[in-house]
Nucleic acid binder design. Structure first.
Ligand code: FES
Ligand code: FES
Lengths: 145, 145
DNA sequence: TTATAATGATACCAGATCGGTATCAATCAA
DNA sequence: TTGATTGATACCGATCTGGTATCATTATAA
């Protein structure tokens, strides 16, 4: 099944949660885990990835927590996916062209590249500001039916 | 790395090869493996998958071999991908919506679905007739530099 | 100073997947 | 009968996956 990993899905939930909080406020991994129903230890691992990717800022200590490193208008779904998955390749030969021994004659290659490019463009078109506006709740139970 | 499996790449090569052969002629797994540089046993496994998916027709015995089940104008990249990978889900929650416990409030869900849909549409837009016309050679060495 | 609560960094685990190989049976033409 | 083909499995080691656990580090607050 051509799909992102579970962790990447969780990461999108984490960023969406942060985008829904008031600007400047900090959330803790524990809070996010409970509210967004993600295993606590996984949130920790995901936060590490997102932090080294530069998408979020973390603060240690008693009053520590997590906050977005940039305004949600400038964080796209593509960035989250690539922070967790690595490159959106679609086919490895789009990233390492020398692995296909048929390279000059292989006409499928162009197709993979084209489709990959528009896939990336579509992922980059989605900002978390847009997702946050779309009726999200700052804590999910508020609007749950 | 968000990518199809190696087998799926091979499968595309196999179908492209068949699309480049004269209509009605049969290729053997051995030939395809050598010409398209795929491990022989893998071609066998891939052929099985493609056959049960209805994309190719196989014939056993001495003069046996493999041929397309339909004209290449009617075989798309999407069909090949889904024959090998299963559904193009992008995120599992687009296929099994009940696994996301935040379902009604999760605004990311729509994004996954939309992007998945256009990805599928783009894969479905590519026919192997088009790929075959695009300068492919019936055996790759012919045009290799 | 001490207690507490948070992140950083690893290490570990069982199970699934991946890429590849191997084997034997069934089929068909020569 | 022989040989070449596909069908169907079974197997292998390596890697990935989803999840858990542990200890160190940092910072706030009593
Ligand atoms: S170059 Fe990508 S499949 Fe050949
Ligand atoms: S429904 Fe897909 S991530 Fe929530």
């Amino acid at each position: 099944m051509l799909t992102i990993s579970r962790e990447t899905d969780y990461a999108a939930r984490v960023i969406l949660h942060l985008a829904l909080q008031p600007t400047g406020s900090r959330s803790t991994a524990r809070q996010i885990a409970e509210l967004r129903i993600i295993p606590r230890a996984l949130v920790r691992r995901i936060v590490t990835r997102l932090a080294t990717a530069g998408l979020i800022t973390t603060a240690r200590g008693g009053d520590g927590g997590i906050t977005l490193a940039r305004p949600p208008t400038e964080i796209t779904l593509l960035e989250v996916v690539e922070a967790l998955e690595g490159p959106v390749a679609l086919n490895i030969c789009t990233v390492e062209p020398n692995i296909c021994p048929l390279m000059p004659a292989c006409t499928v290659h162009e197709a993979w590249v084209d489709i990959r490019d528009t896939l990336r463009a579509n992922l980059a078109r989605i900002t978390f500001a847009a997702l946050a506006q779309k009726g999200g709740a700052s804590s999910p139970d508020t609007t749950a039916r």
